[in-house]
């Protein structure tokens, strides 16, 4: 009898300890949040998340609800890259969110989109969120404003990542030429004549200037160096007074007409005009029956449960019939 109560006491103690641990894991963030609201906490937060100010977030309902209301920010991957629509059928469908997948729009091949975040749904499909607007002549351009009453034409939506091709950028360049990049010494600098500005290129040989730097100070810093096929030395800037992820030609920083050696990108597939009447859902567009897809999963689950109940029930019944007599 004493042994039983000892076991019960041990079970209660262990259970309580586990409950406290589990609750602690949930409660601790609360005081931490309170600390972060104090001035010193905000300073700490600012130091730790200096890069957070640079991350633009789309005003998309699904993204905002998951990130802010449900605190599931880690379900999204920050991408921050440009793509162009490149689907075999000549256009892609835009949906309202990766879970409901109601089609809201269609974009033709070649349309440039900026994808800030991606999300992997339960089926393993990778979705990217876009924010865009249509001009008066129907062209689509990325938008970074705030959809709402002031800008009714600005929309957000989700597209399948398999329907787009990457616009060759600095990240792609650094991946392709990783073996030819050298770490900078930190002593690199540029000298400008009066009136000259440093040209910022998307990548060495891109032919595309994304901005300029009017003058440089001692905070000018490059992290990687690259020497191109013409012998020019380039430096990569991670961040400098709002300019980020760009390349400057250290050999000739103010030059605007440097030779172009464009990076490889997917061939643009022929574009087609989307149908006037869009399908209601992505499942319908892909020829799948949406509700049946969920139904088939539930039927499989029911079958597995029936199998486990049947098998275990059989074992338990056998044990009942052959229960050892005391």
């Amino acid at each position: 009898m004493k042994k039983i109560w000892k076991k019960a006491a041990a079970a209660l103690t262990l259970g309580t300890a586990l409950a406290v641990l589990a609750l602690g894991a949930a409660v601790i963030p609360g005081p931490l949040r309170n600390f972060m609201n104090e001035p010193i906490g905000k300073m700490v937060s600012g130091l730790l998340s200096a890069r957070a100010d640079l991350i633009w977030e789309p005003e998309d309902p699904f993204y905002m609800e998951k990130s802010w209301e449900e605190d599931k920010r880690d379900e999204f991957v920050h991408l921050d890259r440009n793509y162009f629509v490149n689907q075999e059928q000549g256009y892609l469908y835009v949906v309202d969110d990766p879970e409901n997948q109601n089609i809201t729009d269609a974009l033709e091949n070649g349309t440039l989109v900026y994808i800030s975040f991606t999300y992997l749904d339960g089926e393993g499909t990778d979705w990217g969120v876009i924010q865009y607007q249509r001009t008066s002549d129907g062209d689509v351009t990325p938008n970074y404003g705030n959809p709402g009453e002031d800008e009714p034409e600005v929309r957000t939506g989700w597209i399948r990542m398999e329907d787009v091709s990457l616009v060759y950028d600095s990240k792609a360049f650094m991946q392709e030429y990783a073996g030819e990049l050298e770490l900078a010494s930190g002593q690199e600098n540029v000298s400008l004549e009066k009136g000259e500005e440093v040209q910022c290129w998307t990548y060495p040989g891109s032919g595309s200037i994304s901005g300029t730097i009017p003058n440089v100070d001692d905070k000018f810093h490059v992290d990687y160096l690259y020497t191109d096929q013409d012998g020019r030395e380039w430096g990569h800037i991670v961040y400098y007074y709002g300019v980020r992820d760009v390349w400057v030609c250290l050999t000739d920083p103010a030059a605007t007409n440097l030779p172009v050696h464009a990076g490889k990108t997917d061939e643009l597939l022929p574009l087609k005009t989307p149908p006037e009447k869009l399908p209601a859902t992505m499942a319908e567009a892909l020829g799948k029956e949406g509700p049946a897809s969920g139904l088939s999963i539930w039927l499989t689950v029911l079958g597995l449960v029936a199998l486990s109940v049947g098998a275990s029930g059989g074992i338990i019944w056998y044990f009942h019939l052959h229960k050892p007599r005391p």
């Binding site: 689950v301 486990s308 098998a311 074992i315 044990f319």
Partner: peptide, 16 residues
Amino acid sequence: LLVAAANLLTNPAVVA
């Protein structure tokens, strides 16, 4: 084995 069978009986049904 009986403990395992009892859990096989209940766990999948509970989760589903």
